[in-house]
Design a protein around this nucleic acid. Structure first.
Lengths: 255, 255
DNA sequence: GCAAAATTCCGAAATAATAGGAATTTTGTA
DNA sequence: TACAAAATTCCTATTATTTCGGAATTTTGC
């Protein structure tokens, strides 16, 4: 997709804002992107005008209200988020103690958590968090999506991520990758252990939209320790998660 | 603040996305902004490249993952949101049934709700919602901020919004507006009824940051009907809200 | 009210944006 | 799988905009 070079440079400023460094001075932005001071001010000016940046203390810029507003639009509009909210809550309630419920969405070839809910969070670190992009290849929430991609898309992913696929043991060539995804697709809901966070166990089921296109996944994260050798608990969670996935898919098809 | 014209035009595309119309085709965007098809594609291309837009069904663009990601950065970083979260929860718990807790923030001369929490929402419509920009002049959550603006800022606001100020009965000239804000400042926490939503009653207290600069407000919304003539309940809510405001201010000053 | 910091202003050379129509790719459907 | 329709990219000359350094100005913190 062809782009506008100037706009790209301006937008590249946004990418510098991160959790690690959420506040910048104009001079530093300019230095980072090799722009003169006056140009840096012009760029920042455009982003401030759009509300994407805002000056907190003078001279110190942070993410502005337009980002929060856009997020609201995204939340209000996304049929996945809307239809899954209540189902996610119920899933967590019925799953017993120590679980986090996650709703994830496919964006291009990435996965992003778009909703999370927990009553009694487990004592483990979890990477998934609303708004954090995740790789499509690791963790049950991602793999539940991956293995349900349409063949064309799956092929594109394979060509791009050949090494990562091999490293995860999902096949060294297209044929074996295809076979492996078929196998995983059939064994849904998927269970993964420690793929993203040591000590975490994930259980996830796919969610489909119109035309059976994969939209995202719904699932639970809990401490692997807590269900060690308790295969009955895991099975009951798989049942719950699978039902939740189907419920969301059904809700999406209904008016 | 000087801006970059091209970037501005590109960013103006974002403003077309709203709750009412969250999905656009490139052609329609071009028509709306009077751009040729190829230019519209270039603009959209830049925004897609930045992740701010994304194609759902091909040809249909919506807000993209970067917006959600920026929101996460904003949430994680904003000291107001971080420090107030738990206090807001407690406030709602202690306030009894039928309340919504709101945390609002000053952005330029606007107010935006940045967090909300409710256990048992009242049966009324409320305008305040996380991510929705609100005028600085109406509603207790906004006025709690307004009346605590530094004199210079308040003056700038008055010059800009002279008619709105008069319409809200806050004074027809600068002197009387100043006097009125002083009076309201002293009577915190503020109570307002039906200023934004018919039948809604708001109670809000200001929150200050470094150097006693006003940062935002914390408060409750409930059904005016529910507290009709129950001035004791209102007084007890004012006490709770006032304490919450002070607690957040204190939390912000602590390391 | 003052010094320091932040921001705006300037204009000319260098660079990039734009339209519009044709060419191509992608998609939905038979 | 193949087809038609839709979406997207490609093209290039003309036109308009961006960019820079440094000086001028405004705003801020004390």
């Amino acid at each position: 997709m062809k782009k506008v070079a100037t706009a790209d440079r301006v937008l590249s400023i946004l990418r510098l804002f991160s959790t690690e460094r959420p506040e910048w001075q104009v001079e530093d932005l300019g230095a980072e992107l090799q722009l003169s001071a006056s140009t840096a001010y012009e760029y920042v000016g455009s982003l401030v005008g759009a509300g994407l940046l805002v000056a907190g203390r003078t001279g110190h810029y942070t993410i502005g209200p337009a980002a929060i507003e856009l997020d609201l639009i995204a939340r209000r509009v996304d049929p996945l988020t809307r239809n899954a909210r209540e189902i996610l809550r119920k899933l967590v309630e019925e799953s017993g103690a120590g679980t986090i419920g996650l709703l994830c969405r496919l964006y291009q070839l990435q996965v992003m958590c778009v909703d999370e809910y927990s009553i009694d969070p487990p004592p483990i670190e979890t990477s998934y968090e609303r708004g954090r992009p995740m790789p499509l290849i690791r963790g049950s929430a991602s793999k539940a999506i991956l293995v349900n991609l349409p063949a064309r898309t799956l092929r594109r992913f394979f060509d791009l991520e050949r090494e990562a696929v091999a490293a995860m043991g999902l096949g060294r060539d297209w044929e074996s990758f295809k076979a492996e995804t078929r196998r995983l697709r059939r064994s849904a809901p998927l269970v993964s252990i420690g793929e993203l966070d040591a000590g975490a166990l994930g259980v996830s089921a796919p969610v489909f939209g119109e035309n059976d296109l994969i939209l995202g996944s719904i699932g639970l994260v809990l401490s692997a320790e807590a269900v060690r050798e308790d295969s009955a608990r895991i099975e009951s969670l798989r049942t719950l998660v699978g039902a939740a996935g189907q419920a969301v898919t059904r809700a999406l098809l209904a008016p």
